[in-house]
């Protein structure tokens, strides 16, 4: 830190993480560069975070893991694997891993490897899309609250506090148990539960930037509020937001897994990792592989996103 920090209107309570937002925002406190750093960044324009990503070892391992699953998910229709719902009852005599079924078969005689790969396609579509939707809702709300302040801020922040005061899984359980498990409903629940967290981060970042010269310059040019929020402010908040997005995708994968495990997952019979773990637990004392392999799949994919987030955070701290 070379320059003194620019005073912001951040009231102290904003720095106190609230219960449910805190987990996906794990990197928040570390990732958010001070206003002074951001200003320096705007003048010197060093290469962006994404372009410097290859210098981070952890991040590259994470990207490798994500790519591995993405490629498997995309190429699933052409891979020499069984259809995910095909039941091979003959193999059930020996459900463990074998030459015909590399990871064995599940309680219904379906090939676990095939189901994991098709499940990857599903989770890699739903989780990033749900996180993106949470951002589409959270960003405008956070920008409005941070840019206008006053009553707008009070309404947005108080409404967010209500959602964030919930123990998050309980909120998901009640919502999904009521509206029923479907891809659309799970995405709706993620947006409702996770959008306020996004809004809170964007609001904090906007408050830091709100009084910087470039915003004043844009206001002098008589740019519209919409232009200032989305073209001036939002791109300057991107560093911490990219990190948060990675964490949020990872956390959404966990959430979808938990919902599946609790019996509220994406509807069967199509493969869903969390549901696979749950189905396998009925046989866990005899055939632990039925739960173990899908559980390992979830862990690696989440780890991939968390490693990328950690690498990004480290890089942004180096600035």
């Amino acid at each position: 830190m070379t320059a003194p920090p620019v005073p912001t209107n951040n009231v102290p309570t904003n720095n106190v993480p609230t219960p449910d937002a805190a987990k996906p925002e794990a990197a928040k406190s570390g990732a958010r560069p001070s206003a002074a750093e951001i200003r320096a960044d705007a003048i010197e324009r060093p290469p962006g975070l994404i372009r410097r990503l290859p210098t981070s070892g952890v991040a590259m391992v994470g990207i490798g893991i994500i790519l591995f699953w993405t490629i498997l998910a995309i190429t699933a229709p052409w891979l020499p694997i069984d259809p995910p719902n095909k039941s091979d009852l003959a193999s059930f005599a020996n459900p463990g891993p074998s030459a015909a079924h590399w990871l064995g078969v599940d309680i219904k005689g379906r090939d676990i490897l095939a189901r994991i790969i098709w499940g990857a396609q599903r989770v890699l579509t739903v989780a990033p899309l749900a996180a993106l939707c949470a951002y589409l809702v959270g960003c405008p709300l956070g920008l409005l609250a941070g840019y206008y302040g006053g009553k707008v801020d009070a309404v947005v922040s108080r409404a967010g506090d209500v959602i964030l005061s919930f123990p998050i899984i309980i909120l998901y359980v009640i919502l999904i148990a009521t509206i029923g498990p479907s891809i659309l409903n799970i995405m709706l629940a993620v947006v409702l539960a996770s959008g306020p967290g996004v809004a809170r981060i964007v609001r904090g970042l906007t408050l830091e930037q709100r009084h910087l010269d470039y915003v004043a310059a844009a206001e002098l040019r008589r740019e519209s509020a919409f232009y200032i929020m989305f073209v001036e402010l939002l791109p300057n908040c991107r560093g911490p937001l990219i990190t948060d997005f990675c964490l949020r995708v990872g956390y959404t994968i966990i959430t979808i897994g938990i919902l599946g495990f609790l019996g509220l997952g994406l509807p069967p019979p199509d493969p869903d990792w969390g549901t696979m773990v749950k189905e396998g637990t009925t046989m866990i004392s005899i055939r632990p592989h039925m739960s173990l392999f899908p559980a390992i799949a979830i862990v690696t994919l989440v780890l991939g996103f968390n490693l990328v987030a950690d690498g990004l955070r480290e890089l942004s701290l180096k600035d």
Binding site: G257, A295, V299
Partner: peptide, 14 residues
């Protein structure tokens, strides 16, 4: 990072 990437139901299974 590794332990926070393992959700409760997965570590339970492990």
């Amino acid at each position: 990072i590794v332990t926070t990437s393992v959700p409760e139901f997965a570590s339970g299974v492990f």
